[in-house]
Computed example of a mutant assay.
Amino acid sequence: MQPSQDYAALRRDPEYGQLNQRLLEFLALGGPRRLLDIGCGDGAVSEVLLGRDPGLALTGVDPEPGLLAEARARLEGRAEFHVGDAASVERLFPPASFDSVVMANCVHLVEELPAALGAIHRVLEPGGRLVFNSAFYAGAELPAELPVYAELIGAARRAARARGLVLDRSAPAKTPGMRRSAEDYWEALAACGFTGITHAEESFTFSGGFLAALCGTPMFASAALPGIDRNVAAELLRESLQKQQQKAPVTVTRRCLYFSAVRA
């Protein structure tokens, strides 16, 4: 899993946060008692969960120590936090330590999905539930929205060439996680021993603020302008977006994928 500090601006976007609210509805009725929040970042989702149930025993894991410091300050002793990623949880916690695991908007950052799901399976108790979501997968972009992304990326690439910057055409267009489909997630869950697998897809409309935050993420900036320093790529993309917005407000609609699965 990539350092989530790179995704902090996107996570803090209020429209993007709506996806998390829907995710939490997929937790088991009656609510979890011992929950692991993987990719917890600065604790925003953890805070929502504790607001719903102050008696919840909550543990957060994230690869970025700086964000975990923010989470600890936000929750003031109401949860415990550890440095780690999805694949490391079986080294951090004994088997069957939790009855619920949440991964909010970060499963597409997991590079080795089978290893991560296997580790999660082992720290869940029998009957425990895993829920996760992603707005970055094969099928997330609606066909009608593709021209918006094409115009944004095309303008940024022209600006890059005007600066004398050279794109690396051999680089992959998308990270492995963004190329996964709903079927890929379903098959991976089943292969790791999860049962009761269900999924849903819902659409959300985002404004330019979401796109500006998206432009700064490694997965988007590096894919849009491969071979160019990611910070420079993000700058060019934001400049391109700003020019688009001067002509007319920019919005995009994306699908979000939701999964729920149970450890047998």
Rank of each mutant, 00 (worst) to 15 (best):
A248G: 10
T195W: 10
A28Q: 13
H108T: 07
D184V: 06
Q242S: 13
P14Y: 08
I197L: 11
S97M: 07
A234P: 06
R238T: 10
G118T: 10
L56P: 08
K247A: 15
S222K: 13
R22H: 13
A188S: 14
P94M: 13
R169N: 14
E151W: 06
L109M: 14
G216F: 01
R22V: 12
A171L: 04
G43I: 09
L27H: 01
L68M: 06
D229G: 13
R255W: 07
K174I: 10
L56T: 02
A264R: 15
R72F: 05
A173M: 05
A224E: 03
V89H: 01
D13Q: 09
P218W: 01
D85R: 02
L27V: 13
A115N: 08
Q242T: 12
Y7F: 14
R74C: 11
C106P: 01
R129C: 04
A96V: 01
R78Y: 08
V45T: 14
A28K: 04
G30N: 07
E151A: 13
R11L: 12
V102P: 00
A8Q: 14
A248E: 15
G17F: 06
G208E: 12
N231P: 00
F98M: 06
K247R: 15
Y149F: 15
L10K: 03
A71T: 01
F220Y: 09
G139N: 06
M103G: 04
E201Y: 02
G164N: 13
A86G: 14
A182Q: 08
C40D: 02
L58D: 00
H199D: 15
H121R: 12
G209H: 09
A248D: 12
A248R: 14
D37K: 15
A261M: 06
Y149H: 15
P95K: 12
A28R: 05
A190C: 10
Q18H: 08
Q242I: 08
Y16R: 01
P94F: 03
E239V: 12
A261F: 04
H108P: 11
R161A: 15
T205S: 14
G30T: 03
E201C: 03
M219I: 10
A160E: 05
A234T: 09
L29G: 15
L10Q: 05
S100M: 10
E151N: 06
L211Q: 06
L109N: 09
C106E: 13
G31S: 04
C192Q: 15
R34N: 06
A173C: 01
A115R: 15
F206W: 02
Q246P: 04
E235W: 02
T175P: 03
A188Y: 11
L257W: 12
G193F: 08
V83N: 08
E70F: 05
S222G: 10
K247H: 12
Y137K: 01
V83C: 03
G227T: 08
G41C: 05
V252T: 14
G118E: 07
D53P: 00
S4R: 05
L58E: 04
P65C: 09
V250Q: 13
K247G: 11
L241H: 13
V89Q: 00
Y7W: 08
